[in-house]
């Protein structure tokens, strides 16, 4: 019953999002939605490894960047964009497999700083190898339509959220959560922690790579180094935490909140948007470990208890 309801809601929201370009003609609003969808993809893909599996990855931008750089190069070389994106995602997977076994030798905070260093290495290397700005060729600029980009972002976001949902509700997802809670205990129950972590990393990397591909198709001119910037990692991490890690809705809410907050603040505090978000992030880590979703669950639990005690009173 409840599952059916969520399914219907998801379908309605998807249909509504798909219909948006029919009604919204303003480029600024469409761009704005593109950003939300991009952040949904980033935060949700981060969440598979960071939230469900408990491996806080601070090198997420590496996968986003690899997806972007491969897609951009192949697309400019005349490839079909979807094919180019797929290769971008596969490149991200290749990198994930390369770093997987050394990275997962590190546990907890050591994994976190290890991935941070890894992200910085890629960021600096790409900056060195590709110092020139990457601009769209003229023929692509002439044929540029925002609506196509919007649908691409929407598709990537949907795939990401769908993949996260499917994994979270599978046996693999259960294993991942067991690894997050107690790695040693999970192993003693027969869960191969390394395999589960690697799967989460690969999936997370692939989805971030796709998002990078969509970004490469969307952004007109940028330095190839830019998608590798630690900013993307930080933003994804903060969004997932503020919305609620280890939930499907959390990163989505976090991403929407992030972009909306930016817009609201643009009236008078635009330049201090990262400060406000940073403060919120610290507050969540310190006082609200479940983020918005955790808060919502707590409120619901309280109401439930109230209702139960009321029911007891009326039916003695």
């Amino acid at each position: 019953m409840k599952k059916n309801l969520s399914f219907v809601i998801a379908l309605v929201v998807t249909a509504a999002l798909a219909a948006v370009p029919l009604f919204v003609k303003k480029d600024s609003l469409l761009t704005y939605l593109c950003m939300i969808l991009l952040y949904v993809s980033l935060a949700s893909s981060w969440n598979i490894l960071g939230g469900y599996t408990g491996q806080v990855n601070l090198g997420h931008s590496a996968f986003f960047g690899l997806g972007a750089i491969a897609t951009r190069l192949l697309w400019f070389a005349g490839w079909n964009i979807l094919l180019a994106m797929l290769v971008g995602g596969l490149l991200a997977i290749a990198f994930a497999l390369l770093i997987g076994s050394p990275a997962f030798k590190l546990r907890g905070a050591y994994f976190t700083i290890g991935t941070l260093a890894l992200g910085q290495i890629l960021y600096a290397t790409v900056g060195n190898l590709f110092p020139q700005i990457s601009s769209m060729p003229v023929q692509d600029l002439i044929s540029y339509t925002l609506v196509t980009r919007y649908y691409l972002f929407l598709a990537v976001a949907l795939i990401t959220v769908l993949a996260a949902t499917l994994v979270a509700n599978s046996r693999w997802g259960l294993g991942m959560m067991a690894v997050r809670e107690q790695e040693d205990a999970a192993e003693s129950l027969g869960v191969n922690a390394f395999q589960h972590k690697l799967l989460a990393l690969v999936l997370s990397a692939f989805l971030a790579g796709l998002a990078g591909g969509a970004f490469a198709f969307f952004q007109i001119g940028y330095y190839p180094q830019y998608p590798f910037s630690p900013i993307w990692t930080l933003d994804s991490t903060m969004m997932a935490y503020i919305g609620g890690t280890g939930t499907i809705l959390g990163p989505i809410i976090g991403a929407i909140f992030f972009v909306v907050l930016k817009e609201v603040l643009s009236l008078n505090l635009a330049e201090f948007h990262p400060t406000v978000f940073g403060i919120l992030f610290i507050l969540v880590v310190l006082f609200l470990p479940g983020g918005f979703m955790g808060l919502w669950k707590r409120i619901k639990d309280k109401q439930q208890k109230k209702r139960e005690s009321m029911a007891e009173l009326s039916h003695p």
Binding site: V56, T112, L234, M238, E271, P274, F281, L286
Partner: peptide, 19 residues
């Protein structure tokens, strides 16, 4: 403690950079 200090440290560094 290590993990959470790292996270709040990141929040703090975002704030200080921005300011």
């Amino acid at each position: 403690k290590i993990q959470n200090s790292l996270l709040v440290g990141f929040g703090l560094s975002t704030i200080l950079q921005n300011v």
